[in-house]
Amino acid sequence: MNPGRSGSPPVTHLALPKRPARPPPGEAARARRQWPLWPPPPVTRGFDELPHPYAAGHRGVDLAAAVGQQVLAAADGTVVFAGTVAGRGVVSVDHAGGLRTTYQPLLPTVAAGDRVTAGQPVGTVVAGHDGCPEQVAACLHWGLRRGEEYLDPLHLVLASPTLRLKPWHR
């Protein structure tokens, strides 16, 4: 755990299935949801489930990245912000269902009002994300909201386990 920070300790390595270097053509468009970095990166810090909306904590996930790596739209949507906040490049995209994803720090390659599709580049990663582990070149902070409620963005890309009931034989 980082001294002076509340919430859960950072997740240093998330086991992910082996994937090709790039998604097969059309995969992202069919799925309509995808990782903002490809191939799927390790999560360096997870989402904090908070007891109330004003509690201190981490309202997104940090993903290990390389400086200059393309940041991809996680789903189809419209760019509502592409610019600088507190000296860092930020892109926010509105999606169906009242969802909004946010990516930072990056150098935006889109502008407010642009329509994007899942997997389309929206910027490139830059160094300078606070809390990025020293052994990682750069981190992308990926956030998700529905209205004013912050959600764990990993729910967009990690499949929920499927429960199957088996016949019961005596």
Rank of each mutant, 00 (worst) to 15 (best):
A73I: 04
V80N: 06
V80W: 04
G57Y: 12
D48W: 12
G57S: 13
T78V: 15
T78Y: 04
F47D: 02
A73K: 03
Q70R: 15
Q69V: 03
V71L: 09
A73C: 10
G77P: 05
F81N: 03
V79N: 07
G83V: 02
V79I: 09
V67Y: 02
F47Y: 15
G57D: 08
G83E: 08
H52K: 12
G83L: 07
H58P: 02
V67H: 10
A64Q: 00
V80P: 09
Q69F: 03
E49D: 12
A66H: 15
A82W: 03
Q70H: 12
A75D: 03
A55I: 09
H52G: 07
F47T: 06
F81L: 10
A55K: 14
G57E: 09
E49Q: 14
V71Q: 01
G60D: 05
F81C: 09
R59N: 06
G68H: 14
F81M: 06
H52A: 11
V79Q: 03
V67I: 15
H52Q: 10
A65F: 11
A64F: 01
A74L: 10
P53S: 08
L50W: 07
A75Y: 00
V61A: 01
Y54S: 10
L63A: 01
H58C: 04
L50T: 02
A66D: 11
D76A: 15
V80Q: 12
F81I: 01
T78M: 11
D76R: 14
V80H: 04
F81D: 02
A65Q: 07
H52Y: 15
A56G: 07
V79P: 06
D76N: 15
V79A: 04
L50S: 03
A75F: 00
V71P: 00
P51T: 06
A66F: 09
V79L: 09
V61P: 02
Q69H: 08
L50I: 10
G57W: 14
E49F: 14
G57I: 14
D76C: 13
A75R: 02
D48G: 11
A64L: 04
D76T: 10
V67E: 11
P51M: 12
L63W: 02
A56Y: 15
Y54W: 15
G83F: 10
L63P: 01
V80G: 08
A55L: 11
A75I: 00
A56T: 11
L63R: 01
A65T: 10
G57M: 13
D62F: 05
F81E: 06
G83D: 11
D62A: 07
Q70W: 01
G77T: 04
D48L: 14
A65V: 13
P51R: 12
A82K: 01
A66Q: 14
V71R: 01
V71A: 03
Y54D: 11
V79F: 08
H58A: 00
Y54Q: 13
V61K: 01
L72N: 06
A82R: 00
A82L: 08
A65E: 07
F47R: 05
